[in-house]
């Protein structure tokens, strides 16, 4: 992992209320969120957030409602101003930006996709898609080609002249994504972009996003409250709770080694066979096993391996990456890995 760091958040605090700075003092002296609300009537939105987001990766910020995840994403383009801390984009501190520089950042560096689509109801799909270019002063004719291209890419060719209210929710969000893509910005902020959609359409959209990402390699910050979605999309997963980062890291790592009862609760319900991949549970060794039943790619998920073994727990597979063996995987350890961290759960509790 040696990609450059695109967005870097350091010691970020946000306190909501009439006098955030005084409340900030109290927080630093160790006052908790509930105490702060009770004694000073201020809400602690974010508490000492430190996250690095690498270029070309999908960073998923996950948490339940009220965990501060939507607040956090709005700090990146300063729709919300932080109380304290720093945010660097491309090494520049965006908090020092004046209005002009901030507008440039929003127009050229970042685009955003919203939970409720937030399309302009009085503009056609085409005009909505070209919003970013329109804002920069282009006429419809100038952005028509670009917008049509991205609309086609998200599967909406032929709908250019319809109005948003004529489209279904899933199609509206496709317009939302096309709008973000047309702005041609390297960073995409997605605020619960798929949460308002039906489960099947949501899966479609996730696949579309992964597909686009393979091709475009944007830096995507994705907010969700759905762990399955987070695990499916994330290169880097950040779990928020009450404004704290509880744990962050590679998603497989978090599933295998949760460090907090909150996360253990969270991951107890997921389909581990589909989430976990061979490389995260294999024994690292380059020695070929004596009785190899076959070779599997390191990114194969456990579900596929189980299907391959026909349920035979005595088999051992070679785990391959780039044509070389990187480890071995016995079906016995695979079965063990399928059991949620129950013993660990009890131990932590």
């Amino acid at each position: 992992m040696n990609q450059e760091i695109k967005i870097s958040i350091r010691n970020l605090y946000k306190v909501f209320g009439p006098e955030p700075l005084t409340a900030m003092q109290a927080v630093k002296e160790g006052m908790t969120k509930s105490e702060l609300l009770e004694k000073q009537n201020h809400v602690l939105g974010l508490h000492d957030i430190n996250v690095d987001m690498k270029a070309g990766q999908i960073t998923v910020i996950m948490g339940l409602s009220g965990s501060g995840k939507s607040t956090l994403i709005r700090h990146l383009n300063r729709l919300i101003e932080p109380t304290e801390g720093s945010i660097h984009v491309n090494g520049d501190d965006v908090l020092t930006y004046d209005e002009e520089a901030l507008r440039k950042l929003r127009r050229e560096e970042m685009s955003m996709v919203f939970q409720k689509f937030a399309l302009l109801p009085h503009k056609t799909v085409l005009e909505n898609t070209g919003l970013a270019l329109w804002i920069k002063g282009n006429e419809v004719k100038q952005f028509e080609e670009e917008a049509t291209k991205w609309l086609a890419r998200v599967g909406l060719q032929g709908h250019e002249n319809q109005y948003p209210h004529q489209l279904s929710g899933g199609m509206q969000q496709r317009v939302g994504i096309a709008r973000a893509l047309t702005s041609n910005s390297p960073i995409m902020l997605m605020d619960e972009a798929f949460s308002a959609l039906d489960p099947l359409i949501r899966t479609d959209m996730q696949d579309l996003l992964l597909d686009l990402q393979r091709e475009l390699k944007k830096t995507i910050v994705f907010i969700t409250h759905d762990l399955d979605e987070a695990l499916k999309l994330a290169d880097h997963l950040v779990i928020l709770k009450d404004g704290f980062v509880v744990q962050q890291g590679e998603p497989q790592e978090i599933v295998m080694h949760p460090n907090d009862p909150y996360i253990i609760d969270f991951i107890s319900d997921i389909n581990r066979a589909r989430v976990l991949r061979a490389y995260s549970i294999m024994d690292k060794t380059t020695q070929a096993p004596e009785n190899s039943a076959g070779q599997v790619s390191s990114t194969t998920n456990l579900e596929e391996i189980i299907a391959m073994s026909h349920g035979d727990t005595s088999l051992v597979y070679q785990v391959m990456k780039d044509g070389e063996q990187v480890g071995t995987l016995s079906m016995q350890s695979l079965v063990k890995a399928l059991v949620p961290t129950h013993s660990a759960t009890r131990a932590v509790r």
Partner: peptide, 27 residues
């Protein structure tokens, strides 16, 4: 006027004047 639409206008870098004439008044 829908707060979400205004937020989108801000997030894509509209100036106050653009927001008024292109979003708020039409809506």
């Amino acid at each position: 006027v829908d707060k979400d639409v205004i937020e989108a206008a801000d997030a894509f870098g509209m100036t106050k004047r653009q927001k008024l004439f292109r979003v708020q008044i039409p809506l």
